[in-house]
Every structure is written in structure tokens, then in C-alpha cells.
Design a protein around this nucleic acid. Structure first.
Lengths: 181, 181
DNA sequence: TATATATGTGAGTAATCACTTGCAAATATA
DNA sequence: TATATTTGCAAGTGATTACTCACATATATA
């Protein structure tokens, strides 16, 4: 057994989650069979269903922890008291994603194309915080500026996760200069 | 038989392509079985393989015509002689996508997450044209500006295709004002 | 008209799918 | 220690998968 935050989880259950995440993120949920997950995880296929009931239950379990990771990242921005810090940290956000967490984000971005899992409201707190920041800084259209910066954030994240973003630092500086932060 | 541009295509072949496009775009390639395509198209399953050899051949055939549609849209921008027109038309681009062609674009955007079908070079001509335009207008960092506008274009397209973009016109005006076009 | 080719069907195929079941071993609790 | 519960596996299940094949009909060409 191993301690995850404060919940105990068996090693094999963890291995299933880890293998499923990797396969779901890189090959797609539908293209990943439960037998393949079991094989990669080194467990019997039946164990997947013992722990997660069905394939969807496994996916939901992964999505849950992925959303936790997303909220952790947003939390830091939401608690900022300084308008410029909010914008600065939003620009930094996509460049801070750890390689070890790429699969979590890949899966989330991919699933946004599945109606069932696309929830644009998840960005709402960040949009509101940015709107406040742009208002504070006397931008003409604060909410549209917020919308635009979120779009930029999503595009940058997408490019990074797909592995085609060569001039990351240069572009980050460019953006910070644009917003004077 | 029916005439498509200058190539003859049987009605049933067309129906297969149409049904497959709809299903691939909305439910995903892996989640769409050839039997379901045949059922929706009102043909025998075997006919799919007669015309396209295998499922991948069918997908490739759809992708080909999707890329043609994309190139048609880009072509108009690439031939512009005026820098401001280039930027203006790029901003207009995502808002010009016809509802009847949503499925083509949905499929293209979804497939960008599959390594095999992700080809960032496809945007290169547009990036270069925009870089030229921003240089012409004396922007400090033309190529980064181009990269940024393309990102905005991709984000807007994505939001429109996912159906969560309520303030389209307002946002379009906002962008045009930002770039003074 | 005769014949070759293209278009179409329906009934197959083996492989794989998500999932179940019966039973054993490990662990927690009394 | 005795017993209940959890964790685990191997061998299944029927349904569905992408794809093939034999055969028929429609169309193009000689």
C-alpha cells in the first residue's frame, strides 16, 4: 500500500490509473482497450472492473484527479491581490506545466471535444479574475481582454502539449511586454 | 451518378463519405464502426471496403477534401497585396466558416491531437503572409505577432466549433479595433 | 451485340471488445 | 486465533469489430 494525500491506495490500483492515463492521453480513450491497460499495468483485466466497475468509471477517476491538478494551478492566480500579477501569472501558466503532468493535460484538452466532458464553465473563475485585473488597469474592454488572454492561454497550452512550440521563452517575453507585466 | 467538380462519383459513394464525415467528426473515428456508417448511409457494409479498401482509406479520403476546403479559405488571404487586408481577413476567417462545413473543421481540429495527422506546417504560408503584413505595418516583432494572431484564430475556431462562443460579433470588432483594421 | 469492368449485396470470418464469474489468497477486524 | 472483507486472478461470456468473399447486376467499351 502507498499513501496518496490521505487516502490509501493499493499499488496495483495505482498502476492501473497510471497506465490508463498514459494510454487514454496518447492513444485516445476509445482506442485503448481494458486488456491493454491491464497488460501495461501488469495486472489481470478483471482487477480493473473490481476497482472501477467499468471503463467509464476508470476514466472518471482519472478525470477527477486531473481536475484537481488544474484547480491547484488556478488557485494561485485567483488569490492574487495585484492586477498585474494576475496577468503575469496567467501568461506564465502554460509554461509552468510539468512534463510529468503532460498526460493529465493532454487528456483534458482532448476530452474537451467530447460534448459530455466539455465544460467551459470551469474557466469562469479565471475569466472573472482577469476581467477584474483588466478593469483595474483601465483597459477599455476588460471582459473581452480576459476572453482573449484565456484564448491565448489555451492555444499556448495546446501547442506545448502537442510538442510544436519551439520559441517558448521568446514568446512568453513577447506577451509580457505586450501586457506590460 | 453525380458530377463533383469534374470527377464522377456514384451516389452511394457520396453517401458513405457524408455519413462517415458526420460520425467521425461528432463521435470520433475510433468510436465509429463501419457497420454504423453503412447503416446511416443506407448501403451495405461491404461497399465501404469496395470503394475505400479499409477504414483508414475512408478517413484519408475525407481528410483530403477537408484540406482542400481549408486551402480554399486560406488562398484568398494569401493573394492579398495590402497588409491591413491580410490581418483583417485573418480575423474574419473563423467567423466565415459555414455551418454546413462544421463537420469538416471539427474533424480536422480533433485529428490534430493524433500525432499522425498533426501537421503544423500546414499553417506556414499563412504565418509567413501575416509576418510580412506585420513587418509592413512596422510592428516590433512581426513573426511573433503572426504567431499570436494564428493562435487567436485557432482558439476562436475551436470555440465556435464546440458551440460555446456567444459574443462572436462583439469579439470580432474588439480584435479589429486592437489591430486597427 | 458481346464482353469486360465497375458497382453492389449479404453472409460469412477471426479477432477483439467490455465485462462477469468462481475461487483463492491476502488483509483487517473481532 | 477465528472470521469477515478486500484484493486478486484465470477463464470464461455474448456482442461487436474491421474486413473478406462469392455472387449478382448495372454500366462502359469493343
Amino acid at each position: 500500500m502507498q499513501v496518496i494525500t490521505h487516502i490509501y491506495m493499493t499499488d496495483k490500483k495505482e498502476k492501473i490509473l497510471k497506465s490508463a492515463l498514459e494510454l487514454f492521453a496518447n492513444e485516445g480513450v476509445n482506442a485503448t482497450s481494458t486488456s491493454k491497460i491491464a497488460k501495461i499495468a501488469g495486472v489481470s483485466e478483471g482487477l480493473i472492473f473490481r476497482h472501477f466497475n467499468n471503463k467509464k468509471g476508470l476514466l472518471n477517476s482519472i478525470i477527477e484527479s486531473a481536475e484537481e491538478k488544474a484547480n491547484d494551478l488556478f488557485a494561485d492566480i485567483l488569490k492574487q491581490k495585484d492586477a498585474k500579477s494576475v496577468i503575469k501569472k496567467t501568461i506564465d501558466l502554460p509554461f509552468l506545466i510539468k512534463k510529468s503532468e503532460y498526460d493529465y493535460w493532454k487528456l483534458q484538452f482532448k476530452l474537451k471535444w467530447e460534448e459530455e466532458y466539455n465544460n467551459p464553465k470551469k474557466m469562469q473563475p479565471l475569466i472573472e479574475k482577469l476581467t477584474w485585473a483588466f478593469l483595474e488597469l483601465n483597459y477599455e474592454k476588460p471582459s473581452l481582454e480576459a476572453q482573449h488572454l484565456i484564448q491565448t492561454f489555451e492555444s499556448i497550452s495546446t501547442e506545448i502539449l502537442k510538442g510544436n512550440f519551439s520559441n517558448q521563452n521568446e514568446f512568453k517575453q513577447f506577451l509580457k511586454h505586450k501586457y506590460s507585466v
